[in-house]
Amino acid sequence: METFIGAVINGLALGMAYALIAVGYSMVFGVLRLINFAHGSIYAFGAYMVYFFISIQVGLFWSIMIAIVLSGILAMLVDKLALEPLRKKQSIPIASLITTVGVSFIIQNGLALEQVFTSEKKGFPSLNLFPNIMIGNLTIQSSQIIMFAVALVLLAVLSYIVNKTKIGLSMRATEQNARAASLMGVNTNFVISFTFFLGGCSAAIAGTLISGYYQIISPTMGATIGLKAFAAAVVGGIGVLYGSVVGGLVVGVVECIAAQYLGSNVRDPMAFVILILILIIKPNGLFGKKGVSKV
C-alpha cells in the first residue's frame, strides 16, 4: 500500500510540473492554432541557464529568476524571428509546424555544442530545500512538495492572468478572432509575443523543478518530457488551461504507478497509451471544445 501511495504522490508532483509545461503548448495553440514543438527545448534551455548561472556563483534564487526571464525571451524570439515572418507571408500551417521542430533541434544541439555545455550529462543542484517528510514507511521528498506547490501556484497565477486581467482578455479575444480583436485596439502581435513569453517562463520553471528533483540535466532532456506534456495537453483538451492540469496529473500518476509495478521502461510510453485511449473515447480530449482541435 505504501508503495502505491508513494507512486501516486510522486505522480502528482511530476504531473503538476508536466501541467506547467502543457499549458505552454495549450496557450500557444490557443492564439495561433499551432503546436510549438520548440517548447521542450525551451524547457531544457531553462534548466541549463539555472545550471550556468549557479556555476558562475550567482545564487540559486537569482539564477532561477534570470533563467526564467531568458527562457521567456528566447521563446518570444523564436516566434519573432522564425514564426512571425511565416504568418506575414500567410504560409501554409505545416510550414510553421516544421519550423518549430527545426528550432527545437537547433536549441537542443546548440546546448550540446562542445563550446557550450557539451552533450554530457551534468549534475543539477537538489531542490530538497527542507527536510523530507516521513509518514510511517513513506518518505515524501521536499523537492516533490516544492515541485507540486510551486507548479500549482504558478498555474493559478496563469489562470488569473488569462481569465481576470486585461491582457488575458485580449489573449482570449485573439484566440477567437484575431481580426476582430485588432478592431478592438488589441495589438495581436504583442499578444502572441506575450503568450510565447509566458509559455517560455513556465517551461523554464518546470525545467528547474524537475531537474532539481532528478538532479541531472542533459541537452536532450526536453525531448521526451516535451512530448509527454504535449500528450497531457491533448488529453485534457488543448486550448483549455484546466484541461492541461488534469491531463498533466493523469499522465504523471499513471506513469509513476506503471513504473512502480511494471518496471521503469514502461514509464515513458504511458503518456501516449493514455493519449490514444482518451482520444478514442473523447476525440477532443477530456475538456476540449468541439471544433477547436482541428489542426
Binding site: N177, R179, A180
Partner: peptide, 13 residues
Amino acid sequence: SLSPEGREVFPAL
C-alpha cells in the same frame, strides 16, 4: 470604430 460585416462578436466571451 467598425462594426464588421457578419458581426464577428467573440462567441465564447
